[in-house]
Design a protein around this nucleic acid. Structure first.
Length: 378
RNA sequence: GGUGGGGUUCCCGAGUGGCCAAAGGGAACAGACUGUAAAUCUGUCGUCUGACGACUUCGGUGGUUCAAAUCCACCCCCCACCA
């Protein structure tokens, strides 16, 4: 307890590993808005809102940190407008840590609307078609305005299927961009942490090279980017197993945009500390719910008169209060409440999952825990 | 009673001689979704078949025609306006 109190006074960026179980780590990371316990799942709130739920819901679920997105918030409402309102914390009324993605992924997913050069990425807004330029420096400035606790460097996320030459060149660019970002925001210039993103596509040696180029530099954490972009699952796991151990042991490791319950547990087993994914919230809105017994597609006819709870082993408001029959009806009727109840549940499942993982690591039975998840989701 | 319009596959609704098992939408059923251009997208949707294909459908009955949801006759029902 005193140890915890000591850590609560630690400077932002402090990362402590409390226990290990195999390659899995139990840790905690200090930020300007409080401590994040790892392994952690971070709900995604792209435009400054975790869709369908409110901050008090997230606090009730004990979400420790959420995501925002540089690209979206820069386009609308504008990072300076947000800055004038106390940054994203003040604007969105979220008191706990926030991580902002750099826009690198949008550069990837908006392919066709952008052009990548050494200087940065020129892109067209998906909102009004207007032209913009993101440089590593610009993206730092935007994230400083948003005042996120963890800022990500601008990177290029290489699509699955990209050739070796392209991937090799791209990884070098991502490294140079990362170093420019660090230079634009030197350590100690503020309380915001800065994470680098490793790339390397689907070539193990290029993954090694990318980590090699970045690991020696002074970042607060290291992310693995460019996975789960359409490749076969085994390939993702292979590259993850290859890459995770290469990342600095004493810094938090973040697997970007991943993933399913199985992906998360697998990532943890390989030594990853942080995860984010739209899956729990997006799938909630599309009727796919994650439960202790597996995925439930709540639209299915078989639930029309199912009076049981969505997940008998879940303590969330949705599961405590409503029947599958009612949840199916809400979905079929396209009621707003459907999005909210489904999102609350899925977020609970993902947050409970990492809480249970942390407990399992602390108790030295993580492999056993992982087998349990695999039994349901593999 | 008169005049005009109309009855299409679960619903709405296109189709006015062959390219029609019949556009489109909805509903229904199933699936996808991984750093959110996603309350989105995909598939099925007359019956039988794995498929090719076969068979039965467009208010009813009868007819014209090589061929009818489409043309003709009569009948049934609905709507609008007029009396």
């Amino acid at each position: 307890m005193t140890e915890h109190d000591d850590f609560s006074q630690a400077a932002p960026g402090a990362f402590e590993i409390l226990a290990r179980d195999g390659a899995a780590r139990l840790g905690r990371l200090q930020t300007a808005h409080g401590v994040v316990n790892t392994p952690i799942f971070m709900p995604v709130g792209t435009v400054g809102s975790v869709k369908a739920v409110a901050p008090d819901d997230l606090l009730a679920l004990n979400a420790e940190i959420i995501l925002g997105n540089t690209y979206h918030l820069y386009l609308r409402p504008g990072d300076e407008l947000v800055a004038r309102r106390g940054g994203l914390h003040g604007f969105a009324a979220w008191p706990r840590p926030i991580l902002t993605d750099s826009g690198g992924f949008q550069v990837f997913s908006l392919e066709g609307l952008r052009k990548i050069t050494e200087e940065g990425v020129e892109f067209r807004s998906h909102l009004d078609g207007s032209k913009h330029l993101f440089t590593p420096e610009k993206v730092m400035s935007i994230q400083r305005n948003l005042n996120s606790d963890i800022m990500m460097v601008l990177d290029e996320c290489v699509p699955y299927g990209a050739e070796r030459d392209y991937t090799a060149r791209s990884l070098g660019l991502t490294t140079r961009w990362a170093l420019r970002a660090r230079k634009a925001y030197p350590r100690g210039a503020g309380k915001n942490l800065l994470f680098a993103i490793t790339q390397g596509g689907f070539f193990a040696d290029l993954r090694t090279e990318s980590v090699g180029q970045l690991a020696e530099h002074d970042f607060d954490g290291f992310a693995i980017g460019g996975l789960s972009v359409g490749e076969p699952k085994e390939m993702m796991y292979e590259l993850l197993a290859h890459t995770a151990p290469l990342l600095p042991d004493r810094k938090p490791r973040y697997l970007m945009g991943v993933g399913t319950p199985l992906d998360i547990v697998t990532g943890i087993s390989m030594g990853v500390d942080m995860f984010d994914c739209v899956l729990p919230t997006r799938n909630a809105r599309n009727g796919t719910l994650y439960t202790s017994l597996g995925k439930v597609n709540i639209k299915r006819k078989e639930y029309a008169e199912d009076d049981g709870p969505l997940d008998p082993n879940c303590g969330c408001y949705t599961c405590r209060t409503f029947s599958r029959a009612y949840l199916r009806h809400l979905y079929a009727s396209q009621e707003i409440l459907s999005f909210r109840l489904n999102s609350l549940h899925n977020l609970t499942y993902f947050l409970d999952l990492v809480r249970a993982a942390r407990k399992a690591i602390a108790e030295g039975r993580f492999s056993e825990f992982k087998l349990g998840i695999e039994a349901v989701y593999a």
